[in-house]
Amino acid sequence: MSEAARKGMKPKKNRAGLWGIYLALALIYIWAFSGMNLPEIKPTAGQITKSIFNGMFHPDWDYVSDPGGEDLLHGLLDTLAIAALGTFISAVLCVPFAFWAAANMSKGKAASGTGKFVLSFIRTFPELVMAIMFIKAVGPGSFAGVLALGLHSIGMLGKLFSEEVENMDLGPTEALMATGANRFQILWFAVIPQVITGFLSYTLYRFEINVRSAAVLGVIGAGGIGTPLIFALTSRDWNRVGIILLGIIVMVTVIDLISGYLRRKIV
């Protein structure tokens, strides 16, 4: 086979479209980098990095458990409690949203479309901003964090739950309807047994995410381990920063392992 013939065998791609994409990408990058003024690196940056690493390897072990109260374990427990309660609130509140957004349960496409839009609106609303608003309402502390997580998680859980409901087998529902069951009985005996495992698994998954979020909420004063971390960072107490980071990493890893094990058992 000649060289030319072999070349001819290559599948023809949409060259113009490809070049268009490259051009668009190049423009985006030129825009992105030209807008960035060259950062000034503080002369102390290297020294601080060294102290942070030093602090990571020499954590302040005395901080782990302090009978006085304000210690690492207390902070981590607080974080877990915020995540657990927030996840529970959202798992309960999102159920009506899920049925509203599910195409096979709602009446008409418009209803489920509105439900989906409301859920994506809630999802996009930053949870930190929600936390700030709840701090205005109930004062700074863990409760504001619980409410923020509870409201924000509705967005994602509602979406996942509604997809679970949409994937449901409608046979049992029709069968029960044919035998004259009322709406409540249909829900209890046909719908719930089919979706409950999915709901539980997604709730555990969201709990994993919420543990990470709860660790952050303290940055703005909504309880949890983030508050002592910010204090330690601003007072340049690197050994304490080290032990708090270690604590967060261990907590998140353990929770992920436990939750992953439970989710595999459920499904």
Partner: peptide
């Protein structure tokens, strides 16, 4: 966000 707060401590 925690990563960011650490980097803020380092780089300003």
């Amino acid at each position: 966000l925690l990563l960011a707060s650490i980097f803020v401590a380092i780089f300003g």
